Computed example of a mutant assay.
Amino acid sequence: MNKQDLITIYPTGFFSDVPSTDISQLSLPINQEWFILEKETLNPSEEQLLTTLFPNNLDTHHLDHHLWYHYLFQNKPLPHSEKSFRVIQLKLKKESTNAKDWLTHLSELFNQVEDFFFIDRQTAVLIEEKTHIILQKEELEGMLLTLESDFLIQATAYIGSFNEATHNFTSFFAEEELIFSTYYAEQQHVFSFQDIALDYLTKDKIQESTIMQSLKETLVLDDEIKRIIETLWLKQGNITSTSKELYIHRNTLQYRLDKFYERFGISLKDMKNLTLCYLLID
Rank of each mutant, 00 (worst) to 15 (best):
F191Q: 05
P55N: 08
I36A: 02
V220K: 07
L49Q: 08
D5T: 11
T242L: 03
Y71D: 01
L72I: 04
K226D: 14
S84W: 01
L28P: 03
F191N: 03
L106S: 09
T242S: 09
T12W: 00
N75M: 08
L140D: 07
N57F: 14
Y183A: 06
I225H: 07
S81E: 10
K91V: 04
S16D: 08
Y247D: 15
N163Q: 12
T41Y: 07
R86P: 09
T97P: 04
Q74Y: 13
L28R: 05
F15C: 03
R250M: 04
V220H: 13
F193M: 10
I266L: 12
L109Y: 13
K93W: 14
S84V: 03
R121Y: 04
I248V: 13
E38P: 00
K130T: 01
I211K: 14
H62L: 03
L103P: 11
E129H: 11
R121W: 03
K269G: 03
A99R: 14
E217V: 07
F180L: 06
E108G: 12
G265F: 14
F193N: 07
L268Q: 06
S27F: 03
F193G: 08
I133N: 12
K226A: 14
M1F: 05
Y261W: 03
I7Q: 11
L219T: 13
I225K: 09
A155I: 11
T252F: 07
R250G: 02
N273P: 08
L274H: 00
T218P: 06
L103F: 06
N43V: 02
T202P: 08
K226G: 11
V190A: 03
W34T: 05
Y261I: 09
N57W: 14
T210K: 04
D59P: 12
P77W: 00
E262M: 13
L109I: 11
H70G: 09
I7H: 02
K83W: 00
R263W: 08
L147D: 09
E262C: 07
T146H: 12
E47P: 00
E47G: 01
I23P: 03
E177Q: 13
S243C: 02
R250V: 14
I30L: 15
H61N: 12
M271A: 08
E46D: 11
H65E: 09
E230P: 00
S96K: 12
L279W: 01
Y278E: 01
A185R: 10
K203Y: 09
E108I: 09
S16I: 02
I179K: 07
F14G: 10
L92P: 15
P44N: 10
Y261P: 01
M1G: 10
K100H: 13
